[in-house]
Design a protein around this nucleic acid. Structure first.
Length: 331
RNA sequence: CCGCUCUUAGCUCAGCCUGGUAGAGCAGCCGACUGUAGAUCGGCUUGUCCCCCGUUCAAAUCGGGGAGAGCGGACCA
């Protein structure tokens, strides 16, 4: 797989393709980042961008993981001390998951976001950005929460981070799109360079296949799940024998979350996938890629129940090391 | 600074006027049917009624005080 392919595989979009191709031509030493608001436990959403970071490391790039403690503070996530604690746990889980410790730089936002120069740039950005624009870019509010000034400052800081971390590429879930577009538009106004960005898909909700999987509602598989919990959650997932399910009664688009997890979590990390199946149902199956597996699910060759038990096994293997780390923190 | 409104199950809310310690829908859980899930059918669970004080035999309900949230006005002009 060449660098460009490695960098862009499983990406929902890159902005712009030309700029990313340029990076791919000479990936060695380029700095890329994802910012995470510290939370104690990583879930599959976090791990999706982590998969991309692993790809980028493999392509030769240097990875910066921003542990966004100031952002968490702005979002009302507690005191700095509490946020630090969860950030440390997060860091340990990322390393356990498979980020290369040698090529990963973990940075706390507070290391530079409180500097005078940063603050002045932030105010310049505030001056240049309409409330409406900032509001559209800000992170989703929890239901019932009222928008605060902190919430609109939040995305502006994300934009500045791209400059201050001296990055060549910004990575995030598709929900970060508006922030990145804001950054591309406003950074030049401050005399800074425009950087390309890359967005991963947003996984569908496990039980319904609708919308996005989130930790605040619905079912999420996370680093703290036991083998049994993973089996149980995967087994209760929505899984019609198709990769393109019909919309639900309310007309909402639905995905097949089981296939999504194979595509975005299992196959990127495993060369081959073996489905263990009783002789009664045809015996074991082996897949080298997502397409074959998806095709077999659609044709009926692979039954959803077997797909699920296999998925649970592989997810458990991915999660086990992080689960171990979390246990250490809690003892 | 002033005024108005709201606070009841995980969520959205009804009940309050005319006191008798609580309900609906959705969600959730369990079972049936499917070799998964969903859909369908059957069953079940859930509460410091925001807090404190008072009136009363009895307060979610009436009175007083307080807290939190939302909205509006005024000031700046």
């Amino acid at each position: 797989m060449d660098a460009y392919e490695l960098i862009t595989r499983n990406a929902e979009e890159v902005v712009t393709d030309e700029e990313v191709r340029e990076l791919a031509a000479e990936p060695e030493g380029k700095r890329v980042y994802v910012g995470y608001e510290p939370s104690g436990v990583l879930h599959l959403g976090h791990l999706l961008t982590a998969n991309k970071l692993i790809d980028l490391q493999e392509a030769g790039m240097d990875v910066v993981v921003l542990l966004a403690d100031v952002h968490a503070y702005l979002n009302g996530k507690g005191t700095f001390e509490e946020i630090r604690e969860t950030a440390e746990q997060m860091r340990a889980q990322f390393l356990a998951y498979g980020l290369d410790e040698e090529r990963t730089e973990f940075v706390y936002g507070s290391e530079y976001q409180l500097d005078e120069e940063y603050a002045l740039d932030l105010h310049t950005l505030e001056l240049a950005t309409t409330l409406n624009r900032a509001q559209r870019a800000m992170a989703e509010l929890q239901s019932g929460e009222a928008a605060k000034v902190s919430h609109v400052v939040y995305p502006l800081m994300q934009a500045l981070d791209i400059e201050y971390l001296d990055l060549d590429l910004a990575v995030g879930g598709l929900d970060q799109r508006k922030v990145h577009m804001l950054a591309r538009e406003e950074l030049p106004e401050l005399g800074y360079e425009v950087r390309p960005c890359l967005h991963t898909p947003i996984l569908a909700d496990l039980t319904t296949g609708v919308g996005k999987m989130s930790s605040s509602e619905g079912v999420t598989i996370s680093m703290e799940d036991s083998t049994e919990e993973i089996e149980q959650k995967v087994n209760s997932a929505f899984c019609p024998p198709t990769r393109d399910p019909e919309p639900d009664e309310d007309g909402n688009e639905r995905e097949n979350p089981v296939l999504e997890l194979f595509e975005y979590h299992v196959f990127p990390r495993f060369e081959t996938v073996t489905v263990e199946r009783p002789e009664k149902y045809g015996g074991d199956l082996t897949y080298d890629g997502y397409e074959e597996l998806a095709a077999d699910l659609e044709s009926g060759e692979l039954h959803p129940a077997d797909a699920k038990s296999t998925l649970a096994t592989y997810l458990d293997e991915l999660i086990a090391p992080g689960r171990e780390k979390l246990r250490e923190f809690r003892d």
